[in-house]
Amino acid sequence: KWTITVQGEEAIKWAIKVAEARNLDYTVHIDGDQAHITIE
């Protein structure tokens, strides 16, 4: 299990796209213009 933090709307969209493309189980916690994405 690991967490990445991305900043900015484009980076958030990209990170989610990558997680979905790899069929990963993930949760997103949005904090202002940052998102913390935890991959199970």
Rank of each mutant, 00 (worst) to 15 (best):
V18A: 10
I12E: 01
T27W: 10
E9C: 14
A35K: 04
A15T: 05
E20M: 11
L24G: 04
I12H: 01
D31C: 13
A11N: 12
Q7R: 13
G32S: 04
K13P: 01
V28W: 06
I37P: 00
K13M: 10
T27V: 09
V6K: 01
D33W: 08
I16G: 01
T27I: 09
G8I: 10
I39S: 02
D31N: 09
T27H: 08
A35D: 01
A15P: 00
W14I: 05
I30T: 05
A19V: 14
I12Q: 02
Y26H: 02
G8H: 02
T5Q: 06
I12G: 01
Q34A: 10
A11Y: 08
H36T: 15
E40H: 15
E40L: 15
E10Q: 10
Y26L: 04
K1E: 04
A11L: 10
D33N: 11
D33E: 09
G32Y: 03
I30N: 04
D25Y: 14
H36W: 14
E10P: 06
N23S: 08
K17V: 07
V18Q: 13
A19R: 01
V28H: 01
D31H: 10
A11C: 15
W2V: 05
E40T: 14
E9D: 10
A11V: 05
H29R: 14
G32L: 04
I4F: 13
R22P: 03
E40A: 12
V18F: 15
A11I: 05
W2A: 02
V28F: 05
D31F: 12
Q34L: 14
I12A: 02
R22Q: 14
I4G: 01
T27G: 03
T3Y: 10
I37F: 14
I39H: 02
N23H: 12
G32N: 05
H29W: 13
A19F: 15
D33C: 13
I16A: 01
G8Y: 04
D33Q: 09
I4L: 10
E40K: 13
W2E: 01
G8D: 03
T3N: 04
K1P: 08
A35P: 03
G8P: 01
T38P: 00
I4V: 07
D33P: 06
K17H: 11
I12V: 05
K1N: 07
D33V: 07
A19E: 02
T5M: 08
T5E: 03
N23D: 07
K1A: 10
T38A: 05
D25Q: 15
Q7P: 02
D33F: 08
K13A: 12
K13L: 11
W2P: 01
T38Y: 09
G32I: 04
Q34N: 09
V28N: 00
N23T: 04
I39V: 07
G8Q: 01
E10D: 11
K1Q: 09
I4Q: 02
A15Y: 13
T38F: 06
E10T: 10
D25F: 14
T3Q: 06
D25S: 15
A19G: 02
I4T: 02
A21V: 06
I39Y: 11
A15K: 02
Y26R: 00
I4R: 02
T38E: 06
K13T: 06
G8N: 03
H29L: 13
D25V: 15
T27S: 10
N23K: 11
I16N: 01
D33A: 08
H29E: 13
K13G: 05
N23I: 05
R22S: 15
K17I: 10
W2K: 03
T3K: 08
E20R: 09
A15F: 15
E40F: 15
A21E: 14
D33G: 08
L24N: 03
L24K: 04
G32Q: 04
I37A: 02
Q7V: 13
W14E: 05
V6T: 02
T5Y: 11
K1Y: 10
G32T: 03
Q34E: 09
V18P: 00
H29F: 13
Q34W: 15
E9A: 13
V18T: 08
E9V: 11
A19Y: 07
I16H: 01
H36N: 05
Q7K: 13
D31Y: 10
I16R: 03
T5S: 07
T27K: 09
T38L: 06
I4P: 00
I4H: 02
Q7D: 04
A21L: 13
G32A: 05
E9R: 10
Y26E: 00
V6S: 01
E40Q: 13
I16F: 04
K1D: 04
H29Y: 13
H36L: 12
E20T: 11
W14V: 04
R22M: 15
L24R: 05
K1V: 10
I30P: 03
T38M: 07
T27M: 06
Q7E: 08
A35Q: 03
W2T: 03
T3C: 14
T38H: 08
E10H: 08
A35V: 12
L24T: 03
T38Q: 06
G32K: 05
N23C: 14
L24A: 06
K1T: 11
D31A: 08
T5A: 05
A19S: 03
D25W: 14
T3S: 07
I39T: 02
W2D: 00
D31W: 09
Q34T: 14
E40G: 11
V6L: 09
E20Y: 05
I30W: 13
A19L: 15
R22A: 14
I37W: 01
G8T: 05
A35N: 03
V6N: 00
T3A: 05
V28P: 00
Y26A: 02
R22V: 11
Q7I: 14
A35S: 03
D25G: 11
D33M: 09
W2L: 06
Y26D: 00
H36Y: 14
V18L: 13
I4D: 00
I37N: 00
E10W: 13
W14H: 06
T27P: 00
T3F: 10
H29S: 10
G8V: 06
I39W: 10
T5N: 04
D25T: 15
I4C: 13
K17F: 12
T38S: 06
D31Q: 10
W14L: 08
I30K: 06
I30F: 13
T5R: 05
D31G: 03
E20Q: 11
H29K: 12
W2S: 02
I4S: 00
T5C: 13
V18Y: 15
V6P: 00
I4A: 01
H29Q: 12
E9T: 11
V18S: 07
E9W: 14
A15S: 03
I37K: 00
A11E: 06
Q7A: 08
A11T: 05
V6W: 03
L24Y: 11
V6E: 01
Q7G: 04
N23G: 15
K13N: 07
A15M: 11
T38D: 03
I39Q: 02
G8E: 02
A35T: 07
E9Y: 11
L24H: 04
Q7W: 14
N23Q: 11
E20V: 10
D25M: 14
L24F: 09
R22N: 14
I37Y: 02
K17G: 11
A21W: 12
E9L: 12
I30S: 04
W2M: 05
N23Y: 07
I37V: 06
E10L: 11
Q7H: 12
W14G: 03
Y26Q: 00
W2Y: 10
A35G: 05
D31T: 09
G32D: 04
H29A: 09
H29D: 08
H36S: 10
D33T: 09
Q34Y: 14
K1H: 08
A19T: 04
E10V: 09
A19P: 00
V28Y: 05
N23W: 07
G8W: 07
W14F: 08
Y26K: 00
H36C: 11
T27E: 07
K17R: 12
L24Q: 05
W2F: 09
A21R: 07
A19Q: 02
T3P: 00
I37R: 00
Q34S: 11
T5P: 02
V18G: 04
K17Y: 11
R22E: 10
W14K: 06
D31L: 09
T27D: 04
G32H: 05
A35Y: 12
V6G: 02
A11S: 06
R22I: 14
H36E: 08
A21F: 10
Q34I: 15
I30M: 12
A15L: 12
K13R: 13
T38G: 02
E40I: 15
W14C: 14
E9I: 13
I12R: 05
